[in-house]
Amino acid sequence: MKPHSLADLDAFLSVARHRNFRRAARDRGVSASTLSQAVRDLEEAIGIRLLHRTTRSVTPTEAGQRLIDSLSPAMDAVTQALDGLNDYRNSTFGTLRLNVPSIVARAILPDLLAPFLTSHPGIRLDVEDNNALVDIFAAGFDAGVRYEEALAQDMVAIPIGPRVQRYVLAASPAHIAQHGLPQHPTDLLSRPCLRHRFHDAGPLAWEFERQGEVLKLHPEGPLVSSNTPLLLRAALDGLGWIYTFEDLLADHFAAGTLVPALRDWSLSFSGPFLYYSSRRHVPGPLRALVDWLRRIS
Rank of each mutant, 00 (worst) to 15 (best):
A81I: 00
I176G: 01
F273Q: 08
P101I: 04
A170Q: 05
G140V: 03
H4I: 15
S225W: 09
R23M: 09
A74F: 10
R280D: 04
A171S: 11
I103P: 00
T55H: 12
P185G: 01
T244S: 10
R97M: 03
L35R: 03
D10K: 05
S57I: 03
F137D: 13
R106N: 06
E148H: 07
S33G: 08
V58A: 10
P283M: 04
L230K: 15
D76P: 00
F116N: 06
A157H: 07
N131M: 05
T79H: 01
R191Q: 13
P229S: 10
L231G: 10
E44Y: 06
A261V: 01
P115D: 11
W206L: 14
T118C: 02
R294L: 09
L286R: 09
W241K: 06
L6Q: 09
L151G: 14
A114Q: 15
F21N: 00
S91H: 10
A77E: 14
R197I: 01
S57D: 13
P60R: 02
S266N: 12
G94E: 08
A255N: 14
P272E: 07
R197L: 00
T95G: 00
C193F: 08
D200I: 09
D76S: 12
N20G: 06
L85A: 02
R89G: 04
P3H: 07
T61R: 12
A16V: 06
Y243N: 13
L248N: 03
Y276T: 02
P185F: 02
A205L: 15
L274W: 08
D83A: 10
Q178P: 00
H179W: 15
L188W: 02
R263K: 09
A235I: 14
A16N: 07
R163G: 14
V259A: 01
G84H: 09
V78T: 04
F273P: 02
E220L: 13
L181G: 00
P185N: 03
G122D: 14
E220M: 12
A114I: 06
H281V: 08
F269I: 06
D154M: 12
S36F: 12
G221D: 04
G238K: 06
V104D: 00
R23N: 07
P73C: 15
T95S: 10
R17W: 03
F245M: 13
E128F: 04
Y243F: 15
G221T: 06
P285G: 03
L188A: 04
E213W: 04
R106M: 01
R195Y: 01
A107T: 15
R40F: 08
A157D: 05
Q211A: 14
A105E: 04
V224W: 02
H184E: 08
H218S: 15
F198H: 13
R89C: 03
V100H: 03
T59P: 01
A45H: 12
A205V: 13
G29P: 01
N131R: 13
E44P: 00
L286F: 07
D142V: 04
Y167P: 00
S172Y: 08
L51Y: 06
L71D: 06
L96F: 10
F116W: 12
V168E: 06
R124L: 15
V168H: 01
G140S: 07
S91R: 11
A152G: 15
D247V: 04
D251W: 05
V282E: 08
E209H: 11
N131H: 11
F253E: 09
P73W: 09
G240W: 11
P219G: 14
D135Q: 14
A16R: 03
S31R: 07
M1D: 15
S70N: 12
A7S: 13
L9K: 02
